[in-house]
Amino acid sequence: MFISFEGTEGVGKTTLIKSLADYLQQQGKDILLTREPGGTPLAEQIRELLLSPQDEAMSENCELLLIFAARAQHIAQVIQPALNAGRWVLSDRFVDASFAYQGGGRGLNVQTIELLRQQFVPVMPHITFWLDAPVELGMQRARKRGALDRFEQEKLEFFQKVRASYQNRANAEPKRFVQLDASQTPAQILEQAIAVLKQKTTLSSS
Rank of each mutant, 00 (worst) to 15 (best):
A100S: 03
G138F: 00
G138T: 02
E48S: 12
Q192A: 14
I31W: 04
I31R: 03
E136Y: 07
S205N: 15
Q192C: 03
S165K: 08
Q160I: 07
G7T: 00
D30H: 10
P134D: 02
A195C: 12
Q160P: 03
I194M: 04
G107M: 09
A164K: 13
Q140N: 12
E48K: 14
T201N: 03
R106D: 06
T112I: 13
G7M: 00
T40W: 11
S205Y: 12
S183L: 01
L190Y: 08
T201A: 10
R145N: 05
S206Q: 14
S59W: 06
G38R: 00
T202G: 06
E173L: 15
L24G: 02
Q27P: 05
K161G: 03
K175E: 14
L32M: 11
P53I: 08
E191Y: 07
V162I: 09
G39D: 04
I79Y: 03
L180C: 07
K161L: 06
R143F: 06
L66R: 06
E9V: 04
K161P: 03
L108P: 02
I31N: 01
E136S: 12
L66A: 09
P174T: 10
K175F: 10
A82C: 09
E36N: 00
D96P: 06
K198D: 05
A147P: 12
T202M: 05
L148W: 03
K18N: 14
G105T: 08
L65R: 12
F68T: 13
P122S: 05
A69M: 06
E56Q: 14
F120T: 10
S206H: 13
R141G: 05
V178H: 10
L90P: 01
D30Y: 05
K175D: 14
K18Y: 14
S98W: 09
I79W: 04
A133R: 11
S4K: 06
H126Q: 12
Q54C: 08
D30C: 04
Q192F: 04
D55E: 15
V123D: 06
P122W: 08
Q179N: 14
A193H: 01
E152V: 02
F99H: 07
E44C: 00
L116N: 04
